[in-house]
Design a protein around this nucleic acid. Structure first.
Length: 632
DNA sequence: TAAGCATTAAACATAG
DNA sequence: GCTATGTTTAATGCTT
């Protein structure tokens, strides 16, 4: 059953198929061909090595510690959303090449001993396939986590508004690529590779391992398991069975990203595949990207691991014990997992600066959302295009929004991952991030799409949600401006809607700590760390005494870092930093609703903290948390 | 189990 | 009439 599930995971066509055409359509444009060629050849020398030992040395190799980390951290849907389908495919192919040797063993074993071993052998084979597919998922997970630095690295020149970095794929003309593929694959032409990828050339599956990707593609198919849990070996599979399991074909349509062409049968699909999705610069570019992803991952892993150790040493924490990443954890129970992990830390001690739900791994660079909220929420995805995301848990327990965005800005900008924050939090963030702290609805839309790749699709859904939130929550105040209606944030109202906070009651504080405590504390702590490492350190004048900051960290129930930082920058009060009047003045709103002034919540303490110094534009993340209003 | 909250969907109104 | 904007209601699911 698990085998089938995993197989389905890999084969299932991703819901998001938007990015492919963008990716593939921008692979031309000039120079760098030779460099790209050299690079690919260089990489291919490792990828393509026929021997298993050489395969292990290939750039696609991922450290075991990484490969085995947190299989439960990401759902198939997430993987498919985060990685563009071609990336998924390319990654799978690489991984399958790596596993080819293992597959061979399984096949040989199956062929020679099936009659004697019977069900036991089948079970063994299934287990093997399970492990392989799990490994694939791990790799995918790692791949995704490494997507950020890759894209960032490669898209430094891109315009901020570009959804897909156009520089991802240095230009290589098709002829170059064809030749390159020949060199890469050694013997195979693209047509042969395609045939193998389609599973038509089964006879060579176990005999030819010189071509990494085409071979890997063909090797993938035997991994498919039948619904009854039995798996087929290549030679035993009939063509129909083989075809029916083609990863790019399902439900009568081509699953090639962005295609969805209807194919009545497998033959038609194969024809379609050959005609429309032949080997070209698209797949090559994806391959190239993938190579770099892996390389970056390894470099990044080393750096982040070192950083984590240093941080934990500094915090007098136990060195991170290697988490049982292969521990079979239920994806759907990540919420409880999250709490367990939060609770696992001794009271009074901060968590390591990783996401609360993230196993203590060196790979912190990946957005915490991936391992916590996204995992959780996407595991509940259903038919809706956007999917019902229940993220309050992560909002409260995990990484706040500003730090999350600060750390993973590029990631969210490019990866189709839903940010682990509520619409209200995001809207507020968008508004406070604006120069005047007021945005029109359309500007809010633009902020969403600019900041999150996730919100570049299903626009009707999330835009409706944005409007709904703007109207629903009192914290969003519509103001008639010269240019029209703009939306502002009423911080008091925003804080009001939060769960009970510590307003001085020791009992409440204690309850918060012991009850919600660690997750929230961790979130705040993370926020503090993140912010301190990003912005606050650049603005020491904004820092509060540690005691105050520590106290403020106890402020629970916030789903964004703004609040946390506000606390840090307040004088210890857990009340909102800003009064509505402050916002009113800051944005020169002419018609602020009177209810704002009527609010008598304890905001006066915050008046002591004023920041009239304009901040550099690149410190907006902090600025949004510390509006530069002057009290009058 | 109930309450509260977040999300999604939908209907409806209004203004340009 | 269309579109964007804004409001409201309902259903659903999750957390507390």
């Amino acid at each position: 059953m698990m085998v089938e599930s995993a197989s389905e995971t890999i084969r299932t066509a991703p819901s998001n198929q938007n990015g492919v055409s963008s990716l593939s359509s921008q692979s031309d444009g000039g120079g760098g061909r030779e460099a790209a060629r050299q690079f690919l050849l260089q990489q291919a020398s490792g990828l393509n090595s026929p021997g298993s030992t050489e395969i292990k040395q290939s750039p696609v190799q991922v450290p075991v510690s990484m490969a085995m980390m947190s299989p439960q951290m990401i759902t198939p849907q997430q993987m498919q959303q985060i990685l563009s389908p071609p990336q998924l495919q390319a990654l799978l192919q690489q991984q399958q090449a790596l596993m080819l040797q293992q597959v061979k063993c399984a096949h040989i074993l199956t062929h020679t001993c099936a009659s004697q071993l019977g069900s036991k052998q089948l079970a063994f084979q299934q287990q093997l396939i399970q492990m392989q597919q799990l490994q694939q998922q791990h790799i995918l997970n790692l791949q995704r986590q490494g997507l950020v630095p890759l894209i960032k690295m490669q898209s430094s020149e891109q315009d901020d508004s570009n959804f897909i970095p156009s520089s991802l794929f240095p230009a290589m003309c098709p002829s170059d690529l064809q030749q390159l593929w020949k060199e890469v694959s050694g013997v195979q032409s693209s047509d042969e590779a395609l045939k193998q990828a389609e599973g038509l050339d089964l006879s060579t599956n176990s005999s030819n391992s010189t071509s990494a990707f085409p071979k890997a593609a063909s090797a993938h198919i035997p991994l498919h398991s039948l619904p009854n849990g039995q798996s087929h070996t290549p030679k035993r599979e009939s063509h129909e069975e083989h075809a029916s399991s083609h990863p790019l074909y399902g439900h009568g349509e081509c699953k090639w990203p962005g295609c969805e062409a209807l194919c009545e049968d497998m033959g038609q699909f194969i024809k379609h595949l050959n005609n429309e999705h032949a080997l070209d610069d698209r797949s090559t570019a994806q391959c190239r990207v993938q190579m770099q992803v892996v390389q970056q991952l390894e470099i990044q892993l080393a750096k982040e691991s070192e950083r984590l150790q240093a941080m934990m040493t500094h915090l007098h924490m136990r060195p991170s014990e290697p988490k049982p990443f292969n521990q079979p954890l239920n994806l759907a129970s990540s919420g409880s997992l999250l709490k367990r992990e939060c609770d696992a830390y001794p009271e009074g001690l901060p968590h390591p600066p990783t996401s609360a739900a993230t196993p203590i791994t060196p790979l912190r660079q990946g957005p915490s959302v991936i391992s916590s909220s996204s995992l959780h929420t996407h595991s509940h995805s259903h038919t809706h295009g956007v999917g019902p995301i229940r993220r309050r848990n992560s909002d409260k327990y995990c990484t706040p929004i500003a730090s999350e965005l600060a750390q993973n800005c590029e990631f969210y900008k490019n990866a189709d991952v839903r940010p682990p924050f509520t619409y209200a939090s995001l809207i507020r963030h968008a508004i406070l991030e604006s120069p005047d702290r007021q945005l029109t609805l359309n500007e809010i839309y633009n902020w969403f799409t600019r900041k999150f790749a996730y919100f570049r699709r299903n626009t009707a859904t999330w835009k409706n949600a944005v409007r709904h939130n703007l109207s629903l929550h009192k914290c969003f105040v519509r103001v008639e401006n010269v240019k029209g209606a703009v939306w502002t944030v009423d911080e008091v109202e925003y804080q009001k809607r939060r769960p009970p906070k510590m307003t001085g009651s020791p009992t409440l504080v204690k309850n918060m700590i012991s009850g919600l405590g660690f997750g929230s504390l961790n979130a705040s702590y993370q926020a503090a760390l993140a912010e301190s490492s990003l912005s606050l350190l650049n603005n020491p004048h904004l820092m509060s005494p540690p005691t105050a900051a520590s106290l403020n960290m106890l402020h629970v129930g916030h789903d964004d870092v703004s609040s946390t930082v506000e606390q840090v920058n307040s004088n210890g009060s857990c009340s909102p930093t800003l009064s509505p009047q402050q916002y009113s003045h800051a944005v020169h709103v002419k018609e602020e609703p009177t209810e704002l002034e009527e609010d008598s919540r304890p905001v006066s303490l915050l008046a002591n903290v004023t920041h009239s110094l304009p901040l550099p534009s690149d410190e907006r993340d902090l600025e949004e948390d510390l509006p530069m209003e002057e009290l009058e």
